[in-house]
C-alpha cells in the first residue's frame, strides 16, 4: 500500500495535476461578449449548448460553442446578463456579466478603440490566469491527505477512549 501511494505521489508530481470540471471564460469587448468553454486541464468543450439569462432568470438567447469551444454574443440591451453552459453529462458552468458599457458618444471613438485593443491583448493573459486558478495544487493535495490522516486519527483516538471507559 505504501509503495502504491508512493507511485501515485510520483504520478502527481510528474504531470501537472488537473481538475475535471467545466469552466467558462467570458470577456467583454465593447458591446460584444465573447468567451470560451473548456474542461479544466483538458481540451475545449466543443459544440455544447448554453443559454443567456437576464436578471429574472429568463432565457433570452441560446448559444453553442464552435470547434474551439468559443462563442460570441451581442446582447440587445445594457442590462446585466448571466451565461450558462451545460454539457450532457452533468457539468455546468456559469458566468455573470455586469452592466454593459457601450461607447457613450461617437466623439470619444478613439478612446473606445484603445480600450477594445487593450481588452483584446489582455484576453489570452486572463484566460491563462483562469486556467491556472482551476488547477489542483500540490499543496492542496498534500494538505488533503494530511487532513484525512488527522481526521481518522482523531476518530481512532475517540473510539479508543470510549473502549477504555466502558
Amino acid at each position: 500500500m505504501i509503495r502504491l501511494l508512493a507511485v501515485l505521489a510520483l504520478l502527481l508530481v510528474a504531470q501537472p495535476a488537473q481538475a475535471h470540471k467545466l469552466k467558462l471564460f467570458v470577456t467583454q469587448e465593447g458591446a460584444e461578449i465573447s468567451g470560451k468553454a473548456y474542461f479544466a486541464g483538458g481540451g475545449a468543450a466543443i459544440g455544447i449548448e448554453g443559454q443567456v439569462l437576464d436578471s429574472q432568470g429568463q432565457t433570452i438567447a441560446r448559444l453553442q460553442t464552435d470547434a474551439e469551444g468559443r462563442f460570441r454574443y451581442t446582447p440587445p440591451s445594457d442590462a446585466p446578463v448571466r451565461i450558462q453552459f451545460e454539457s450532457g453529462d452533468g457539468h455546468m458552468a456559469e458566468a455573470a456579466i455586469g452592466q454593459i458599457s457601450r461607447p457613450p458618444s461617437p466623439s470619444v471613438a478613439s478612446d473606445v478603440d484603445l480600450e477594445t485593443a487593450i481588452a483584446r491583448q489582455l484576453t489570452p493573459l486572463k484566460e491563462q490566469l483562469d486556467r491556472m486558478e482551476s488547477r489542483a495544487r500540490l499543496s492542496d493535495i498534500v494538505g488533503g491527505i494530511g487532513l484525512i490522516i488527522g481526521l481518522f486519527g482523531a476518530y481512532a483516538w475517540v473510539v479508543s477512549r470510549r473502549g477504555k471507559t466502558s
Binding site: L12, Q18, A19, G42, I148
Partner: peptide, 21 residues
C-alpha cells in the same frame, strides 16, 4: 483512512477520452 486518501488523490489521475477526459 488509506482508501479515503486513495480515493481523494485518484480523482486527479486523468486520461483523455474523446473530447472530454
Amino acid at each position: 483512512a488509506m482508501l479515503s486518501a486513495l480515493f481523494f488523490v485518484a480523482s486527479l489521475v486523468h486520461f483523455p477520452v474523446g473530447v472530454s477526459s
